[in-house]
Design a protein around this nucleic acid. Sequence first.
DNA 1: TGTTTGACCGGTC
DNA 2: CGACCGGCCAAAC
Length: 111
Amino acid sequence: MSRNNDNFFEDVFEVVKLIPKGRVSSYGAIAEYLGIKSGARMVGWAMNSCHARPDVPAHRVVNSKGLLTGKHHFPTPNEMQNRLEKEGVKVKNDKVADFEKLLWLPRKELL
DNA sequence: TGTTTGACCGGTC
DNA sequence: CGACCGGCCAAAC
C-alpha cells in the first residue's frame, strides 16, 4: 500500500479496504502492520471517520477476540453482524465464528 | 497548553 | 468473570 497519504486515517482505510470478502481483521493487526504497535486505539478512532468511507468495510474489523465491539457505532448494531453473515462470516453472540481462521493478517497475506 | 477520550490490548487482582 | 490499570497515539475541547 502507499504511504503517500499524510492522513493517518487513509493508511488505516487502505488496509481495511484490502480485507478480502468473507474475512475479518483486528484493530491490533492493522495497527501493527502500520507500524504502531499498541496503536490499536488509533485504528479504532480512525474508523470513527469510516462513516464517510463507504469503501471501508468496518464491519470486517473486530477486536483481537473477534468480538464485534464496533457494532454500536453502526447505523444499527444489527447491520454489522448482518453484513458479516451476508459475506459468509458467521457471527455468534456478537463474536466471529472461527475468528482465528478468518482472521486476515496484512503482514502475513501481503508479505 | 493541558486534560479528556477513544470501535484497543495485555496483564493483574 | 468482571473491574481496573498502564500504554500507545492522535483529535477534540
